[in-house]
């Protein structure tokens, strides 16, 4: 919408685009659009991959099976290279993170007004379609990874080992226990926070720039929006890769026994 829109100023337009469809109050607010899009993409991802898995042939694969195989092989190779240890969860987890983040980011490529306007036409006022521009999504994922980090650490090193790691590093003396603990806590907590904020920041900034471009006169928009979208193809895949890679590295170090 250009700035001369009937009811909205530029600020209102931007704000409108950055507001989730929410129900509830305070903490118990549900972002229905985020939940719905994430669920739909999850079903899309799992459904297609499940179908391919069911129909997979050991002969010459179809094009889509080939694509799925390439994705899985890519992730599997990375897991083999960077995760030293045996864990049945890591590879499927990495694949899911990779594909889901990419799919959610890909929603960014759909023009910013298409889905909100369509939603408006059927009476839904707000519609923010990129789940990864919602801090709740990115934190949900990174906190799950955090739980796994803690869980694996305790499982591999034992509760004593985990506590030891938090309190006896880097200075192995009882005097330094509070200092060590503070230091290690920062290291530990920085992992989920950096994971979530990196993805959120990248996608939010990208989305915002799309919205700003949409404020330009309609006949000029393509000049900026097409290059930005093309650049975004890279960002989308890269963010998915980074999220997966870092999760794997964190989990790998959690599983390593010193």
């Amino acid at each position: 919408m250009s700035a001369t829109g009937e009811a909205l100023t530029s600020t209102q337009y931007i704000q409108h685009h950055l507001t989730n469809l929410a129900v509830g109050e305070g903490f118990w607010t549900w972002h229905l659009d985020t939940l719905f899009v994430t669920l739909a993409l999850g079903i899309l991802f799992l459904g297609t991959f499940y179908r391919v898995g069911q129909k997979a042939t050991t002969g010459v694969p179809g094009k889509f099976q080939c694509f799925v195989e390439m994705c899985i092989e890519f992730v599997n190779d990375i897991v083999k290279e960077s995760f030293h240890g045996r864990n049945a969860l890591i590879a499927p987890l990495s694949l899911t993170i990779f594909m889901m983040v990419i799919l959610m980011n890909t929603m960014d490529l759909i023009p910013v007004d298409f889905i909100p306007e369509a939603a408006k036409a059927i009476g839904i006022d707000y519609m923010k379609v990129v789940p990864t521009t919602d801090l709740n999504t990115t934190f949900a994922m990174s906190l799950s990874i955090f739980a796994l980090i803690v869980g694996f650490s305790i499982k591999v090193k034992g509760f004593r080992g985990f506590t030891r790691e938090l309190t006896m590093n880097p200075f192995n003396h009882w005097v330094f226990i509070p200092f060590n603990f503070a230091l290690e806590m920062v290291t530990l907590l920085a992992k989920p926070i950096s994971l979530a904020l990196r993805l959120f920041g990248n996608m939010y900034a990208g989305e915002l720039i799309f919205i700003l471009i949409a404020l330009m006169p309609w006949y000029l928009q393509w000049g900026l929006s097409v290059p930005w979208a093309i650049f975004h193809i890279l960002v989308i895949v890269l963010q998915g890769f980074i999220f997966m890679m870092l999760s794997m590295v964190y989990l790998s170090s959690a599983c390593e026994d010193h």
């Binding site: 919408m1 829109g5 009937e6 759909i110 006169p217 928009q221 097409v226």
Partner: peptide, 18 residues
């Protein structure tokens, strides 16, 4: 309803992108 030429601009961009 706020549908206006912006949608057209986005459609052009999207077409070019595709």
């Amino acid at each position: 309803m706020n549908i206006n030429a912006t949608l057209l601009g986005q459609a052009i961009s999207f077409t070019l992108f595709v």
